[in-house]
């Protein structure tokens, strides 16, 4: 029983770290229509920045400032925002397909840098002993797991609440207007490039934060965690959950992560050990199948985009009576 609760807490905590990434992608794609296929790059930057800020000083590696975890998380968000703002400043004017290529290339570059800047990032060995929240309580897996779940859930909730607040604000309204018809929005005085850049940077900040939260939860990061498959997973989560809907982003992350974990367990159970490394590619196929199924049955995802209105407009039901 205790083991089950522990595992449930572990699973949900990890799923929520993906949910945060998914919320970031929802700002960019769901709200603004920015086609970012470099999610892994922003997540990786956040994870590494926070690890460098919070780990103790080590002789064989540059950095290691030993600062509190919260500082690391803030630095990660900031780094994600700066990276997105810089990349965006160069590419946000491009057509959607060029933006996709640019973000993909960016993620590859980040991964290669992390892999090769051994003196800063530990190279292929990654960084271990990243401080974990409530690390002193790690001896009691149940308490430790539940406290970590509480922290990550609080971060997820905070990001969700802030994004809902913005979605229903004039800022969110302008993003939707630009997504729907840029020329019309421009004629109404909205500087499309500036708003796109803001949304891109905000999404980058949230992805950076998510990477940090995940890195601290696991306690270890390495370059192979930030490969294109991560980007694919986050996209799958957003599509399944419902692009444009913040709750959908969270739900999609949990559902797809459950699916991913379950198919991993299934493969482990039925495939002979010597074939398992190869068979794990089947997980990707299964996620692809899941996306197809959801899109066939619920084209807008599990929770589609809502008819979002300003929080100050009475929603019309009482206005019509």
């Amino acid at each position: 029983m205790i083991e089950l609760v522990s595992y449930g807490a572990f699973f949900l905590t990890l799923a929520l770290t993906f949910a945060i990434m998914c919320l970031g992608l929802n700002v960019q794609w769901g709200q603004t229509g920015l086609f970012n296929v470099g999610v892994a790059g922003f997540v990786g930057i956040g994870a590494y920045v926070s690890a460098l800020v919070t780990t103790p000083d080590l002789p064989e590696r540059l950095g290691g400032f030993g600062w509190p975890i919260a500082v690391g998380w803030l630095a990660a968000a900031l780094a994600g925002a700066v990276a997105a703002a810089l990349l965006g400043a160069l590419t946000i004017r491009l057509r959607a397909d060029y933006l996709a290529i640019a973000t993909f290339g960016f993620a590859v570059v980040v991964q290669l840098c992390v892999l090769n800047l051994q003196s800063v990032t530990g190279g292929p060995f990654g960084i271990s002993f990243i401080p974990r929240p409530f690390g002193a309580l790690a001896g009691d897996p149940l308490i430790f797991g539940l406290l970590n779940l509480a922290v990550v859930a609080a971060v997820t909730l905070g990001v969700y609440a802030a994004l809902e607040h913005l979605t229903r604000s004039p800022w969110g309204r302008v993003l939707r207007a630009i997504r729907e018809d840029e020329q019309a929005a421009t004629a109404l005085g909205k500087n499309a490039i500036s708003f796109r850049l803001q949304a891109f940077a905000m999404g980058g900040a949230i992805m950076g934060l998510a990477g940090a939260v995940q890195g601290h939860f696991i306690g270890y990061i390495s370059p192979e965690a930030y490969v294109p498959i991560l980007t694919f997973q986050v996209w799958a989560m957003l599509i399944v959950g419902g692009s444009g809907n913040n709750r959908g982003a969270i739900l999609g992350a949990i559902v797809v992560w459950a699916f991913w974990a379950a198919s991993g367990a299934l493969i482990a159970a039925i495939v002979p050990p010597e074939e398992q490394a190869r068979a794990s590619a089947l997980k990707i196929v299964m996620i692809g199948l899941a996306i197809c199924l959801v899109l066939l049955l619920r084209p807008r995802g599990l929770l589609g985009e809502l008819k979002t209105v300003s929080r100050h407009v009475d929603d019309g039901k009482d206005a019509k009576t």
């Binding site: 939707r176 207007a177 729907e180 979002t308 407009v313």
Partner: peptide
């Protein structure tokens, strides 16, 4: 803005 309500269109 086709998917926005009429009043949200105007508020823009």
């Amino acid at each position: 803005f086709p998917h926005m309500t009429v009043i949200e269109n105007v508020l823009t």
